[in-house]
């Protein structure tokens, strides 16, 4: 078994949203990320994917629960170790327009982290920037330009170069390709895969495009309304989804194949995702679940290993519930 690089334990992130109301953006989720793997995180907008990523990298304080990086509790790190941690864990953002400072030259954007951490100084700095530009498929002439002179795909490449600049071990990519055209998405995804191989990187890849997540991830976690519903090897998840939500999600994805589409039976969920301010009792998915039972309104399902390495939170798979 490979080494656990990141361990997320019963993580909660709640936001106060006025009038004493609390929005439970992430509500008690646990998972591990193994060294060298890509863990995909999927789910519909608002289900808590970004908040999970941001809490792991300490952009947010956790409301409850812990995150361990290389065995160290990240929300308790102090002193000199903070800087080290900040270097090893990097984030790539969705919006290649908003995430780059428009007044900075590309070389300074890429080198910002290197400057903060005091690595690659003087002549080395420039060399390193050129090398990174080349790594992400740009060239050294681009170093002195400003972000607005680049296309969306190129800006995302700059964002990737910036993340790579400080030799990270773990990269959280939050919808890194969602704003790009399909032809350009494929370029960026191929690049991320190559970089992973070359540098032994570990990824948390957040996205809502399940076909792309499956393509890039070794394992996939499915979130709904702040909770983790299912987690499995990506092949297993697609071949044998257990949770009714995962099944519906998979069957909603239109396939680029008209013959298959002609005869495909899909599960169309009714209604919308409930508000995370007043989520349903019991299982968060029960209001839209085609297989909901009485228990589902009463009891929150436990996180079970229903098959080897295949976890699910659903009463349908609770052995104690079906014993009688």
């Amino acid at each position: 078994m490979p080494n656990k690089l990141v361990e997320v334990k019963n993580l909660k992130k709640h936001f106060a949203v006025g009038r004493g109301k609390v929005l439970k953006a992430v509500n008690d989720i646990s998972f591990d990320v193994y060294e060298g793997e890509t863990l995909g995180l999927v789910g519909e907008s608002g289900c808590g994917k970004s908040t999970t990523g941001r809490t792991i990298i300490r952009l947010y304080e956790a409301t409850e629960g812990e995150v361990f990086f290389n065995g160290e509790n990240v929300h308790k790190i102090s002193g000199k170790k903070i800087k080290d941690f900040n270097r090893k864990m990097q984030m790539i953002f969705q919006d290649p327009y908003a995430s780059l400072n428009p007044r900075m030259k590309v070389e300074d954007i890429i080198a910002e982290g290197m400057d903060i951490h005091g690595i690659y100084k003087g002549e080395k700095r420039r060399e390193r920037v050129f090398e990174l530009l080349e790594t992400v498929g740009l060239n050294k002439e681009h170093a002195t330009r400003f972000p607005h002179e680049f296309s969306g795909g190129q800006r995302q490449r700059i964002g990737i170069a910036r993340a790579l600049a400080v030799d990270p071990e773990f990269i959280i990519a939050d919808e890194p390709i969602s704003a790009l055209d399909v032809s350009i998405q494929a370029q960026v995804v191929n690049l991320l895969k190559e970089l992973q191989k070359e540098h032994g990187l570990t990824y948390l890849f957040i996205a809502h495009d399940l076909s792309m997540v499956k393509h890039i991830s070794d394992r996939i976690g499915v979130m709904y309304l702040g909770a983790m519903m299912e987690l499995a090897d990506s092949e297993d998840l697609y071949a044998e989804p257990l949770h009714p939500y995962t099944k519906a999600l998979l069957s909603s994805i239109p396939l680029p194949d008209p013959d298959i589409e002609e005869s495909r039976e899909r599960i169309i969920l009714s209604g919308d995702v409930p508000s995370p301010i007043s989520p349903p009792s019991g299982c968060p998915f029960r209001t839209r679940c085609p297989e909901a039972m009485e228990t589902c309104a009463v009891k929150n399902p436990e996180w079970l290993e229903a098959r080897p390495n295949h976890f699910v939170a659903c009463h349908l798979y609770d052995p104690n519930l079906h014993k009688e």
Binding site: S183, Q185, N190, K193, S211, H215, I216, E235, Y238
Partner: peptide
């Protein structure tokens, strides 16, 4: 053809790289 080979298929093989369209 480029548009079609850029998108992964749900039933596709993960080890096969996508074939993007170069440039913009």
């Amino acid at each position: 053809r480029g548009l079609l080979t850029s998108v992964p298929r749900l039933d596709g093989d993960r080890s096969q790289p996508l074939i993007p369209i170069a440039g913009t």
